[in-house]
Computed example of a mutant assay.
Amino acid sequence: MILYINACVRKNSRTNELALDLLKKLGGEFTERKLDALNLKPHSCESLIYEGEQIAQGNLNDKCFEYAREFAAADTIVIAAPFWDFSFPALLKTYIENIYTIGIVCKYGAQGVMGLCKAKKLYYVVTSGGNFDPRFSFDYIKELCTTQFGIPNVELIKAENLDIDGADVQKILDEAKGKIII
């Protein structure tokens, strides 16, 4: 199963356009989670207590873990997140908080954290108006997925400098699409 995590909120998102091209090349059906439609909330004291109780009781089938189970079961994951304010949209961080569940996406063992996710590859798709700096977005996702979730291959797909005066936006997007090799 291909899981598409869409953190794009604009109707004609360039990031979404690039991600849809990738998904077409991957082939087959995919499940899309449009983050602005999920009504996810950042963790609160109450939600952390509730989730902790469910984990302690071994109740990992609770509805609060629905997206974590889906993420862990995916064969391939595509995250589309525009480069905003030198990072990714807060919706994506909120999603990560909601899926990061011990016993579903990872577990603690004698050697530390062990990833439990089935995916062998995660694609991180991003567009930016200026130069893209991966340190505060892609690098975080890559480190999280490889060291915590057990996803061995994390690939960056990007189109940058889209808003620079005189930029040929469609040409830049088309060149980025041309670099996608599955």
Rank of each mutant, 00 (worst) to 15 (best):
N12P: 04
N12E: 09
R14V: 09
N16K: 13
E17F: 06
E17L: 03
K24C: 01
K25W: 04
K25T: 02
G28T: 02
E29D: 15
F30A: 00
E32M: 12
E32F: 08
R33D: 02
L35K: 07
A37S: 07
L38V: 07
P42R: 08
H43D: 06
H43Y: 12
E46M: 06
L48G: 12
I49C: 03
E51Q: 08
G52P: 07
G52E: 08
E53F: 04
I55Q: 08
I55V: 13
Q57K: 15
Q57M: 15
L60W: 02
D62H: 15
K63N: 04
C64H: 05
Y67E: 14
A68I: 02
F71M: 15
D75A: 08
I77R: 04
V78W: 15
I79K: 03
P82S: 13
W84R: 12
W84M: 03
D85R: 12
D85I: 11
S87C: 08
L91R: 12
K93H: 08
K93L: 11
I96F: 13
N98C: 04
N98S: 02
N98L: 00
I99M: 01
V105S: 12
V105C: 13
V105R: 08
C106R: 10
K107A: 10
G109D: 10
G109P: 11
A110I: 11
A110S: 14
Q111N: 14
Q111E: 15
V113K: 13
V113A: 09
M114G: 02
